[in-house]
């Protein structure tokens, strides 16, 4: 299954894809992108990695089980709505703050970002939760095929 070209290319592509997915997530509020697209790119990166190497390596690279991403993502999205309640506004109303160090940083950060982060994690988790087991079974079968030949 492993191919040298694919493996080398993936080693280069993988960080780029992950960076790109985070880039999409961060710029999503102003330019095309966002948590959903970002999550899909990240998932695609891991799927590519798993094709180039194998699923167990990918699971190790992920560090956490896909369902943990789903859970943390949902939690993140749900929690991001809570600050609004403290301000006596409807649940999930946005709340923005600004971090400003003159000359260096000027970031507007709001609860919608954490919501989007939640979406990102859920999409990543769900996609991998479905694709990785399928790949595992595919690997098993091709091993079977090799055993028989």
């Amino acid at each position: 299954m492993t191919s040298l070209i694919l493996g080398t290319a993936t080693r280069l592509l993988m960080p780029l894809l992950l960076l790109f997915s985070i880039f999409l997530l961060l710029r999503g509020h102003n330019e095309p992108g966002g948590g959903f697209a970002g999550g899909l790119v990240a998932a695609a990166a891991f799927v590519l990695y798993s094709i180039a190497s194998d699923v167990s390596t990918t699971r190790r690279a992920l560090r956490f089980e896909p369902q943990n991403f789903i859970g943390v993502g949902l939690l993140c999205a749900i929690l991001s709505g809570l600050p609004a309640l403290l301000l006596d506004k409807p649940y999930l109303s946005s709340w923005w703050g600004q971090i400003k160090v003159p000359g260096f940083i000027d970031i507007k950060l709001g609860t919608p970002f954490f919501f989007d982060l939640g979406v990102y994690l859920v999409v990543l988790g769900v996609t991998l939760k479905i694709l990785l087991p399928l790949e595992e079974q595919a690997e098993l079968q091709s091993e079977d095929a090799r055993d028989f030949s």
């Binding site: 999503g28 509020h29 102003n30 330019e31 095309p32 992108g33 966002g34 948590g35 959903f36 789903i70 993502g73 949902l74 999205a77 749900i78 709505g81 649940y91 999930l92 946005s94 923005w96 507007k108 709001g110 919608p112 970002f113 919501f115 989007d116 939640g118 979406v119 859920v122 999409v123 988790g125 769900v126």
Partner: peptide, 27 residues
């Protein structure tokens, strides 16, 4: 919504509750 990407602002702010429902279903 402090965002220029209207689609995204709708998804994560104006209609965030819908999105929350959707990601729950997705999970």
């Amino acid at each position: 919504g402090y965002g220029r990407n209207i689609v995204n602002v709708i998804l994560v702010d104006f209609r965030a509750l819908d999105t929350l429902g959707e990601i729950t279903v997705l999970s």
